[in-house]
Simulated scan of single mutants.
Amino acid sequence: MGVEAVDGRIAGERGRLINIGYRLLGSLVEAEDAVQEAYARWYALPGARREEIASPGAWLTTVTGRICLDVLGSARVRRERYVGAWLPEPLPGCVGDVADAVVLDESVGMAFLVVLETMTPAERVAFVLHDVFRYPFAEIAEVLGRTAAACKQLASSARRRVSAAEGASVAKGASVAVDGRAELVRRVKTAWEGGDVAALVAVLDPAAVMTADGGGMVGAVLRPVEGGARIAQYMVAIADMAPGLELVERPVNGLPGLVALRDGVVVTVAAFDVADGRVSRIWVVRNPAKLGPWAGEG
């Protein structure tokens, strides 16, 4: 098979690699950079070497995985210096260009991505490649530079983290009806717009937690707000200090969420998790650097 034919085959791998990269890194921008770097390394190979590679897709997956592993290692250091909480980049339900390639299923729900953040880089790679994308441990071993048995242990450890994560809905998120989630989010929106603390308290779990990510670039609470009553009071206070915002219902990472717009521009994206018929977690992303995919969503 000629080099041109092989290169034609790998063109269709980009979407799959973006999907892997986003789940590994929680950042669409970093996922795209990792995939671009993998393709750059492919084209840097001599033509004869490329022809020798039996499965270019597997080669690209291995290289992309290794790049993401390196990024995850350096990200831990960067996030220690991050102002406030770090949250994954939220994705809208319908966008163009790169984000359009990301399949919005339960493995990109904000709750799931937040749990992935608790894993070591090696655990995350092993878990995502095996449990989400069904790669065999023998191939994952090539990415991590470990034995297949060691990779299996890493995935098992990651699974325990998911099972032990606060909020059992993370593990069974797919079983929660989208209609039920949408209704709860709608009630949050109505109460928030009306400044109705009591109505917000009624829809929030008493042990609910709200985490905000402003990245030091815009105002956001630096530590999680805990307790339904405190969250309700905080939300109403924030609404009073930011008049002119328009709240709209939008899918966030494939699940019902809320978006705040100012003059038609998305300035805040809120994702939700639910448990026992109430909102149990709220993740609010305000860092403008993470809202690029939302341009034009107003």
Rank of each mutant, 00 (worst) to 15 (best):
A122N: 07
A48R: 14
V225T: 09
M110N: 09
I238K: 09
G96E: 05
R281C: 04
A239V: 08
D33G: 06
D196T: 05
G180E: 13
D7A: 07
A158L: 04
D213P: 09
S156K: 11
G109V: 04
L129D: 08
Y234W: 13
A138G: 07
D7M: 07
A239P: 02
G219H: 10
A126E: 08
E246L: 12
G21W: 01
A289R: 14
V209S: 00
V265F: 09
P46S: 09
L28G: 04
D213G: 06
P243C: 04
A101C: 06
G244T: 10
V115H: 00
D276T: 10
V185A: 03
A122D: 12
T120N: 00
G227P: 00
T147P: 04
A158R: 02
F272P: 09
G277E: 10
V274R: 02
R81A: 13
V6N: 04
P92G: 00
Y39K: 01
G264S: 05
T62K: 13
E246P: 04
D105G: 14
A149H: 15
D273M: 03
A149V: 15
V95A: 13
A171W: 05
Q153R: 15
V6Q: 13
V178D: 06
I67P: 00
S175L: 11
A271C: 09
A174H: 06
D131W: 13
G227K: 05
A171N: 06
V63E: 09
V284A: 03
L261Y: 10
F137Q: 02
V176Y: 11
V102E: 02
E80D: 14
I282W: 03
G292S: 07
G173V: 06
A5C: 07
M235G: 00
V3L: 14
S280E: 10
V162D: 02
V108F: 01
L45H: 08
V279Q: 02
E183D: 11
T190I: 06
L17S: 04
G15Y: 01
A168S: 12
M210R: 01
I20N: 04
R278I: 08
A232L: 08
G227S: 07
R16M: 04
V128C: 09
R78K: 11
V185Y: 03
K152R: 15
C94Q: 09
E193V: 15
G93Q: 02
P256R: 00
R250F: 12
K172H: 13
A141P: 09
